[in-house]
Amino acid sequence: MEAFLHQVLAGLATGGIYASVALALVMIYQATHHLNFAQGEMAMFSTYIAWSLISAGLPYWAAFALTVVFAFILGVVIERVVIRPVENAPVLAVVVVFIALLVILNSVTGWIYTYTIKTFPSPFPAQPLFGNKYVSSHELGAIGVTLAVLLLLYGFFRYTPLGLAMRAAAQNPDSSRLVGIRVGWMLALGWGLAAAIGSVAGMMVAPIVYLDPNMMGGILLYAFAAALVGGIDNPGGAVFGGFLVGVLENVLGAFVIGNELKLAVALVLIIGVLVVRPSGFFGKVYVTRV
């Protein structure tokens, strides 16, 4: 029983990682209706920027804030320079661009920072809370940060004119243009925001898995599963999906199917959701009149 509880708690901790990356995926989907395969690498690259700033002597929170701003600008620039030219290209072309971005960011980071793992500091205490042996303070803190980001996003999309405009631009670009929304800039903003959320996720993930150019590779797959399970257009659903995937993966891996098939759990979830309920548990079902 204790082993089971321990696995569930460890699963919630890794689930928090998936949830934070899944949030960034949902964000970009909300804003552009694309799934960005380079999301993980963008977050990883931003985390290296944070690492450089901290190594240069900046206090943690200053580096944190600067990195979020940097990531936002990076996202906007990528949208303007790389994505804009293929705006009207077929989906496949866009996917190829995303994969190219992934490979480029990964190699450039490796080239600049080498592939040796680095430790990344945590803003939370080193001692586990209440002396428990199951979850570290950082893992709890990271879950808290993810939930905070979720609340902010919810408020932003629901109650601010800018958030509403962004949703409109993604869902119906033509009508949005007619009511005066600058659709192009909304897309760029969406990229910026997604990159900023990704950078927060990266900085929360790095102390747990260590910082290296490939740190997001496996995580991104689990995050896709999380986002799809929860509903790719629902931030709350994505976070729930993250925790669900983390716990399922651990419990099934430890007690049912064995560790070899842990990744398969994520892939089966992706396929299962797409076949049975493409909109996920909490996603909206869109009906289009033909």
């Binding site: 890794t14 990682i17 747990i208 590779g217 496996g218 993966e249 651990n250 560790n259 990744l263």
Partner: peptide, 8 residues
């Protein structure tokens, strides 16, 4: 090698 952590 794709596992994010070996905590479990």
């Amino acid at each position: 090698v794709t596992d994010p952590t070996v905590d479990s």
